[in-house]
Simulated assay, not measured.
Amino acid sequence: MKQPLVPVVPMSHTAHIRSHRKPRRTATSTIAVRAGVAGGVLSTLAVAGASSAANAAEPVTQTLELPTLTADLAAQVAQSADATQQAAANYQLRAERDAAAAEAAKQAKADLAEAKKKAEARKKAAEEARQAAAERAARDAERPSLTTTASASASVSAPSSGSVATVLAFLQAQVGDAYVMGATGPNAWDCSSLVQAAFKQVGVDLPRVSQDQSMVGTDIPLSQIQAGDILYWGGKGSAYHVGVYIGNGQYLDAANPSKGVVIQDLSGYPASGAVRVL
């Protein structure tokens, strides 16, 4: 019996080389492949689970941060409230200052008006005193001067001319004015500026300071002083105070800050010397 013919498959020209043959897939390799696929699937599931767990944990993280955000917001609200309260306090303080300034300006205006009113009244009184003194001086000029001798400490006589009366009238009109060192009127004086202003009313220009005023005119003994004579305290040429004798043992001066312009008794504060310029 003839054997059936088996087709002969031509071999590759490299088939005889062992390294070029295709390896046969054994049962062990098949199991390994399957294990790898299963491991990959499990790894994918693990990653997906971890991702899901992470996504599920996010709300918890956000919930834990809420108290911090709420505390910050509360702090900001508190700061805003403090700023608003401070601004309101500043506005109130400014309003109070403005009100005080307005009240002070109103009071200053009233004081100025009152001062002007008093100054006008003094000016009117001084003018009336000048007129009365001029009339009295005119009457005295028509009759012989009468001199009354007093004690050895002082001698008083009536004004011998209208100029003296004018000087005395000006001085009496300033009684009550303030004493301010260096002031020259019209409502505040020091001792020498008052004397200088009084004699300027009759055209006599005296030096500004008491030291120099004690050097002018004619020296007069204190036992022979008359109304209108300038009295000084201290040495001649170094006097520290001056005033004007007004008669009857009295003198008028800008005394000091506590007294102002006053009339005083010469016996209570005897002068050092006297000079006459009229």
Rank of each mutant, 00 (worst) to 15 (best):
L66F: 05
L278D: 00
A178Q: 09
A99V: 08
P7R: 12
L266T: 03
Y232D: 04
D212Q: 15
R97H: 10
A129M: 09
A108I: 03
A38D: 13
G162I: 03
L252Y: 04
P23D: 12
P7W: 11
A105Q: 14
L42S: 06
R143T: 08
F199M: 03
A134N: 14
T84V: 06
A78D: 13
V277D: 07
Q131Y: 06
A35D: 07
A100K: 04
V33Q: 11
K106N: 11
S155W: 09
R34S: 12
R18L: 14
Q201S: 03
S157G: 15
K2W: 05
L266R: 02
A137M: 07
S51M: 13
G203H: 05
A138C: 00
D229M: 01
L168E: 03
A255H: 13
Y251D: 03
R94Y: 09
A104E: 15
A255S: 12
L231A: 02
R24F: 06
P186A: 09
T26Y: 09
R34H: 08
V244Y: 01
K124C: 00
G237Q: 10
P159Y: 01
Q211V: 04
P207G: 02
Q62A: 13
A38R: 05
M181L: 12
Q213W: 05
K22A: 07
A56P: 00
S163N: 14
G260V: 11
S272P: 06
L168W: 00
A15E: 15
P7Q: 10
G273M: 03
A119D: 04
F170A: 01
A27S: 05
Q86V: 07
Y240S: 11
V8L: 14
A129E: 05
E58K: 03
S43A: 14
E128Q: 12
T68W: 07
V9C: 07
I220T: 05
T70I: 13
S258G: 06
V175A: 06
G235S: 14
A27H: 02
I230N: 07
G249S: 12
A53K: 09
L73D: 10
V6P: 03
K259W: 04
R21C: 06
Q201K: 10
L222A: 02
S52D: 10
Q62K: 14
L66E: 12
V77A: 15
L222T: 01
E114M: 07
A46V: 08
A89K: 05
V33Y: 08
S29F: 04
S19I: 08
Y179R: 03
I246V: 15
L66S: 10
L5W: 06
A173L: 01
S157F: 08
H20I: 01
